[in-house]
């Protein structure tokens, strides 16, 4: 891609109001995930049983939870866990699913239809279900949550990438490359990959948010990241009992998840509109 084209795309994106808002929000929380642990005034897991549910004070800007842990620190450090789970799981899912879809689309024929039938079977279980099922087998924890979320992102990316691959395969330049004697692996790498990448980029952005919501739901069901890890969903779930007396305990992590996912969704939409208005 030429430099000026890139520059043009960037300016075009900035004119996209909601996309820019999304970019700003996403950046804020990304920075929080990167630097939050350094900024946290306290150890997020350190219990202090003499200062439980302290409310807002100069020592604890957002107060403390029922273990006397500093809420601000937990929220800041929580960014790394919540966003980290979203990003890692999505990248693994996109990587595996992408290779699968690319291969399936490129191979075509019998193998293609067999692998897509498998994708159908995997997609037949909606939403949280595969995650609940997998974690019921492995037991809860950080790694199972990431693996389960990644696992059921795989068929989605496989189908997406296969679709784009099929479209691109038709295009003349591939035939041209074939004519020039390039091996099929080279065709995949040089020609297919970039044209497939734009929709994947859009979908990755949107998917990170979805995975974060799924991880928080798993925490709510007691199947997610285990305490005392300050994942936002787990914090929010623990705060349920204190909604009437200490609403901040729920509002801080609840708002953090909502705004992060909102940012990612707006960013994804913006990217889609900018990169390829025809994409849906």
């Amino acid at each position: 891609m030429h430099r000026t084209v890139r520059k043009g795309l960037f300016w075009k994106f900035l004119r996209h109001k909601s996309g820019s808002l999304g970019l700003a929000l996403s950046l804020v929380f990304l920075l929080m995930a990167l630097f939050g642990p350094g900024l946290a005034p306290y150890d997020p897991s350190a219990a202090d049983y003499s200062h439980t549910l302290s409310g807002i004070s100069t020592q604890h800007w957002l107060g403390t939870d029922n273990f006397g842990r500093d809420l601000l620190s937990r929220t800041l450090v929580g960014a790394r866990y919540s966003l980290g789970i979203g990003i890692l799981a999505t990248l693994i899912g996109a990587g595996v699913g992408g290779v699968w879809g690319l291969w399936s689309g490129y191979a075509g024929g019998f193998w293609d239809s067999l692998s897509m039938r498998l994708v159908d079977v995997l997609l037949a279980f909606p939403g949280l279900l595969p995650a609940i099922g997998l974690i019921a087998i492995t037991g809860p924890g950080l790694l199972p949550v990431i693996m389960a979320s990644a696992f059921f992102s795989v068929p989605i990316f496989a189908r997406l990438v296969r679709g784009s691959t099929l479209q691109m395969k038709e295009r003349a330049y591939i035939e041209a490359a074939h004519a020039l004697g390039a091996g099929s692996r080279r065709v995949m790498r040089v020609h297919l990959l970039p044209s497939v990448l734009a929709p994947v980029l859009v979908y990755v952005t949107l998917r990170i948010g979805t995975v974060m919501l799924i991880a928080s739901s798993l925490s709510f069901l007691g199947l997610g990241v285990q305490p005392p890890t300050p994942e936002w969903g787990a914090m929010l779930s623990d705060a349920q009992l204190y909604l009437a007396t200490d609403p901040l305990l729920a509002i801080a992590p609840g708002l953090a998840i909502t705004l992060t996912v909102l940012g990612l969704n707006l960013l994804g939409d913006g990217l889609r509109d900018t990169l390829d208005p025809k994409l849906k």
Partner: peptide, 15 residues
């Protein structure tokens, strides 16, 4: 068990 009570109890015993 991973219920709230046992989780809390476990963390306190650990400490």
């Amino acid at each position: 068990l991973n219920t709230t009570t046992y989780q809390t109890l476990g963390q306190v015993l650990q400490q």
